[in-house]
Design a protein around this nucleic acid. Structure first.
Length: 257
DNA sequence: ATGACACGTAAGACGTGA
């Protein structure tokens, strides 16, 4: 079973790239973030034509998440992160596919920090930690994947000193990520490649991709029942080099059946 | 310190992203 995550930065702007990537790599489950499309503008027909059934949580202009499954209908569990009825951002979607619980998340960016946007990020992280603790306590196989907007360590950024004051790398953000790991979650890509420089995002400016000036901010956190099945994982970096690419690349893991 | 690029919205810049 291959599970992938991809921040598309606009599902309709990215549709040709998305369909090409699906066709070439045929993941079984796909979590998408930054749809940047309202619920009714999701390209359901094209996705279905590609062999995927989908659930999605759209929003006009910003945010938006989706879960796709190949030849299968994802069974929706929830479309909101619990803990704040006032939160209107479409940033979380949860479903079961093949008995596996999949959480698809688009964590707030949080810049500029400090400020209200950073406060929102930290509050979202608190809610996420609470929910993650409940999920891991269930003992079920759970995969929490998406754009975390957190650079976990200095090994996950091309030039750490440039990012110390950024919301993605500030101590509060990194500490929250470590607290998730302390709950018992495993960072799948880091476990598979402990010493490798792995990036999942390269900004559009200054030829960042050509210089490999990247960040690792899209992650897979696995519950213990899933870690035992982990066979492989990586970044489809070649997709970032395509015409009209997102600034993120798809990330994937392969699990034993 | 700034801005470069891309997206959506909406019809010209502007807010946002990371």
């Amino acid at each position: 079973m291959k599970i992938a995550t991809y921040n598309v930065n606009g599902i309709n702007a990215r549709l040709p790239v998305l369909l090409r990537w699906l066709k070439e790599t045929t993941p079984d489950v796909v979590c998408l973030q930054e749809l940047k499309a309202p619920q009714e503008k999701f390209p359901e027909a094209e996705i279905k034509e590609a062999g995927y059934q989908a659930i999605w949580n759209g929003q006009k202009s910003w945010n938006g998440v989706a879960i796709l499954a190949r030849n299968e209908q994802p069974r929706e569990i929830r479309r909101e992160l619990p803990g704040d009825v006032e939160d209107t951002h479409s940033r979380y979607l949860e479903a079961t596919v093949n008995g596996m619980l999949i959480g698809c998340l688009y964590l707030p960016n949080g810049n500029p920090a400090p400020g209200p946007k950073f406060d929102y990020k930290l509050a979202w992280l608190e809610r996420f930690k609470t929910h993650a603790a409940e999920l891991i306590a269930s003992g079920k196989p759970v995969v929490l994947t998406g754009d975390y907007n957190i650079i976990p360590t200095e090994a996950d950024v091309y030039k750490p000193e440039r990012w110390f004051d950024d919301a993605l790398f500030r101590p509060e953000s990194r500490a929250a990520y470590q607290e998730l790991l302390a709950q018992g979650w495993t960072d799948a890509l880091r476990k598979l490649h402990p010493d490798k420089a792995i990036y999942t995002y390269w900004d559009y400016f200054r030829n960042a991709f050509g210089r490999n000036a990247g960040l690792r901010i899209d992650h897979f956190l696995l519950s213990p029942a899933v870690v035992t099945k982990l066979k492989a994982g990586g970044v489809d970096q070649f997709v970032r080099g395509w015409e009209k690419s997102s600034d993120h690349a798809p990330v994937w893991i392969e699990l034993a059946d």
